[in-house]
Amino acid sequence: MEPAVRIDHLTKVFKVPSLKGQRVTAVSDLSLQVAPGEIYGLIGPNGSGKSTTMKVLLGLIAPTKGTTAVFGQDSRKVRSRVDVGFLPENPYFYKFLTAEETLHFYGRLGGLRKRAIRERSKELLALVGLEHARDRRLSGYSKGMLQRIGLAQALIQRPRLVVLDEPTAGVDPAGSRKIRDLILKFREDGISVILSSHLLEQVQEVCDRVGIIFQGKLCREGPMEALMAIEDQTEILLERASPELIARVKALVDEDAQASLLRAGHPRTTLERLFLEETSGESPDTRGGSQDA
């Protein structure tokens, strides 16, 4: 089957507007695939090239080298966008439109008919919890509301792939939970998702596969479980364990010749540890200057 996303040796070099004609390599030789129905998480520090990768995938910027395709359609063709919904980072829509008008606008651009849009936007406004604000102009929307109308807008033409750039940025914990639940629902519906996020716990919760990107390179990739599993370690998770019980477990471990107790306490997010491990070093935004002249 055709992969939902195919990125082949993508390199993107930006000319930075400056006197010296510097260049910045935002993405370098990045390859990845997202299978149909898969939820793929792209994580990496600020300036590592997540947004750039997504923009190339949507044909908003041209690749310097390499190709990207959506369901087998080259991203440089407009046709490839028929089956994609995109939520950019910090989305911003026409302030002078209401929520309903916004969905109508994007629905029409997505090729839907008026009647279909009316039904679909009702459904979507309920889904993202904006029914009460459907007649309000977006100029009065909060950041979280904009994020949610952005999500609805991305879904309007029932795309088979959804590209979400930091969908929970600036959204409160409750709202962010709701967005997570929505993404989990995509999986049920067989919609593929590629998302970027700095909330690693959430990525760990929803994603089937994760890629860690650093300085424009994909430095680690794999299924969630495989990435998370540390082969020579075993985690025992206990509920309502008394201090005596833990003392007994410790004693038991001490008796063993090989095993040693590394840590006892509340479990920590391991994706976060992995992230920090993989991306230790300066972030590209603080490094300053160009990578190659």
Partner: peptide
């Protein structure tokens, strides 16, 4: 500037 264009051109709009 407002990046509204991203959302428009991300739809199948030449």
């Amino acid at each position: 500037e407002d990046r509204t264009l991203y959302t428009i051109l991300a739809k199948p709009v030449p």
